[in-house]
Computed example of a mutant assay.
Amino acid sequence: MEQIKDFNPSLPDTKQVIPTKEGGNGQIHVPGRYQNVIWQNRSRVPDNFEIALVAALEEIFDRGTEELGQIIAQLNERRLFDRSGDVWTEKTFCHFLKVNGF
């Protein structure tokens, strides 16, 4: 049996902001040869930026912060800026989430 990877190499390389209306057969798994594993819908392992962002968001949510403006302010206070090194805005943060599927 093949070792389970922590990402799905069968996923397409592109990220669509608007999901397709067709079914995902062949996208999430290879028909007839799949295991239902937690990482089945990611096409690669998260990078350090994504891991740091998720960890910061978990801490922010644990503190009870729920408003988008407050979340962004706390990310910027932590100096956890976007991939370009620019401060987050509501627009850039929402766009990042749409494109990256978080």
Rank of each mutant, 00 (worst) to 15 (best):
I60K: 08
D82Y: 10
E66Y: 14
C94K: 06
F61M: 14
H95E: 13
I72P: 04
G85T: 00
I60T: 12
D86V: 04
F61P: 12
I71L: 11
E59A: 15
E77T: 12
I72W: 04
I71T: 08
W88D: 06
F61I: 12
A73N: 13
V87Y: 04
R79T: 10
W88A: 05
R83F: 03
K98S: 11
I71G: 02
L80R: 05
E66K: 11
Q74M: 06
L97G: 10
S84L: 07
D86R: 06
D86E: 09
R79F: 10
L68I: 09
F61L: 15
K91P: 08
I71Y: 02
L75D: 09
I72A: 06
E90K: 05
Q74C: 10
Q70I: 07
D82I: 03
F96M: 03
L57G: 03
Q70S: 14
R83A: 15
L97E: 07
S84Q: 11
A73D: 14
N76R: 08
E90P: 01
R83G: 14
R79M: 08
E59C: 15
F96D: 03
C94F: 09
D62F: 12
S84I: 05
R83L: 11
E59D: 15
E67Q: 10
I71V: 13
S84D: 11
C94E: 11
Q74P: 11
G69I: 09
T89H: 02
E67N: 13
Q70M: 13
F93R: 00
A73V: 12
R83I: 07
E66F: 12
D86A: 02
Q70N: 11
E58F: 13
